[in-house]
Write a protein that binds this DNA or RNA. Structure first.
Lengths: 332, 332
DNA sequence: GTGAAAGCGCTAACAC
DNA sequence: GTGTTAGCGCTTTCAC
């Protein structure tokens, strides 16, 4: 910038003011500055600016695994929205590991990010309090943090689980398996709740043998299905708590010579891009992925403006997309 | 830091030195500093540090679409490797749009990133020269930049295309379609080259009606297949230039009542995680995705150490993974 | 409408 | 082994 000022024959402060449009400057001076910048191909130093302003244009985003299609799509939505608002994103993959998450959080704090988005992160009460005390704005996405008041955007997972199960029941299925996630975390448990509630509402007994835990990866859906289909009385329908496990489920069924949906029905959860192109196309409960990311970013940006406003909790509804992986139960 | 120094009753420089382990400090002083840091919960300001050191610990990564499984996995590998080396990643989605890419590049320069990774980005000669002149280290991944010498890590796409096609030929297929990508960009064109070369080596005629352009998305594989199967003499095998299009291809075939692999065979490219779980599991040409990301990061880090070393060009080999989407041609 | 000067929080050169 | 000081490149107050 000094160079620009010299080249333009003006003071550094004037140059700064034309760059930031922060003070009236004569047309001539403005011109001189502009051309000097052009000629020197000047790019302001955001580090110095942020240091001085005590505020960066960087956001931190912590996800368990940015290569997982669901998180990848949420991350994409967050990045898009942030870019549109002039914020950059530092990407962090926690792998759900608390230590890594803490390490990343430290890096983000040291880089004085303007805010942090925790996506599906197993965030602890202490961490939230720590961040609050440091006055770091944060938004939690896709996880409920028990006992703490933080800005949160969540999907109505219970409603989604209900929708999925109800759909299967309406198709005549009576033995409906649930390939759950790690049930300790909120979205996973809620999907299961929705499943149970739908069974109840239809006077179907909850059979715990039909519920098996997965970990949201393809493999676990595959394994769970192999296990479930080996039961004495196997289920005729599966509610997989995410699309990846649903894909694994279909894969396993096929290996056992079962046709989807003629022999068994399966419904997923998330509606990632892939879901439209599985074989058969997957019936699934859609989360409003883009909206989740966009809303989370928006909430974070608003939070930055007023750290002491009351925390907000947003729940987004799901929509059932009926495709080709579900059909009426075959008579037995 | 000032606070820490006061608390510890020492000079700021001493504190700095213990933090950075950059000078001999008495055990007692060190202890005092440590506990002061602890008590004040001090986190150094990376902005100030970088400003002073004239070097950040941040890297920029530009990808077309971080929600695309292939890029998502490469990005993941890059982020992992960088984190292990104490570098953070700023994520940029260019959408293959040159303007967005330029905008992102500017942001990265303003943030004085220590280096930039261009993944599959349509990077131009001017941009490379501009960056070189600014002395910004960069590595290009998965794209060849014609007429410019830059550090590059590429897969041997031609070899992969050859492998895929050869495999189909060995299975007895004679009419083999190719669902290509946008053929102007290097990886895409090379895969096609491999396809042609395999045909030639086996004395099979190249029929341009059997080659249709896609855009690496599910949809385009789907559309291309619909088109190809409507030909008077449809192909019995498909080489899709990436896994997503292969999935779209299978999806289209199925809609037309064709079985994979009994009626048609399809092979993909990339070997994204998903490929193991499609229905049927996809035979595909594996790119060493993790290695690509890891190597690219490593090259960038090395480049940062010596900006004037001769540029390196690394080509990684592919491996054919034979799964269940390919089979011997049915007699007709 | 413009300039001088202080200072953001750190590191590195220089003194002792 | 420790302290003082200058300065990284900006923004912002204050003065004119």
């Amino acid at each position: 910038m000094r160079d620009v000022a010299e080249r333009a024959g003006l003071s550094v402060s004037t140059v700064s003011h034309v760059i930031n449009n922060t003070r009236a400057v004569s047309d001539e001076s403005r011109q001189r500055v502009m051309s000097a910048m052009e000629e020197l191909d000047y790019k302001p130093n955001a580090l110095a600016r942020s240091l001085r302003r005590r505020k960066t244009n960087t956001l931190g985003m912590i996800v368990p695994d940015s290569a997982n299609p669901f998180f990848a799509e949420v991350a994409r939505a967050i990045e898009d929205t942030s870019f549109a608002q002039n914020y950059s994103i530092i990407l962090c993959n926690s792998e759900g590991d608390l230590e890594k998450q803490q390490a990343y959080t430290n890096v983000l704090i040291e880089n004085r990010v303007a805010g942090i988005l925790f996506v599906a992160a197993g965030i602890s009460t202490e961490l939230v309090n720590d961040l609050e005390q440091r006055r770091v704005p944060l938004v939690v996405v896709d996880r409920e943090v028990p006992g703490v008041e933080v800005d949160t955007v969540m999907t109505n997972h219970a409603q989604g689980g209900y929708l999925a199960t109800q759909h299967l029941i309406e198709l005549g299925h009576r033995r409906i398996a649930c390939i759950a996630g790690n049930s300790e975390v909120s979205p996973s448990a809620e999907r299961l709740t929705g499943y149970r509630r739908a069974l109840e509402d239809n006077n179907l007994a909850y059979d715990e043998r039909l519920v098996v835990k997965g970990d949201f990866q393809y493999e676990s859906g595959y394994e769970a299905t192999k296990h479930l289909l080996a039961l004495e009385v196997p289920p005729s329908a599966f509610f997989a708590c995410n699309d990846l496990m649903a894909v694994g489920c279909i894969s396993a069924a096929r290996e056992l010579g079962l046709r989807v949906p003629q022999d068994i029905s399966v419904v997923g959860f998330d509606n990632v891009r892939l879901a439209s192109f599985t074989n058969p196309p997957l019936t699934t409960v859609a989360q409003p992925i883009f909206e989740i990311g966009a809303l989370a970013t928006k909430m974070l940006l608003e939070r930055m403006l007023d750290l002491d406003a009351p925390p907000r909790f947003k729940r987004l509804d799901t929509v059932l997309h009926i495709r080709r992986s579900t059909a009426a139960r075959a008579d037995r």
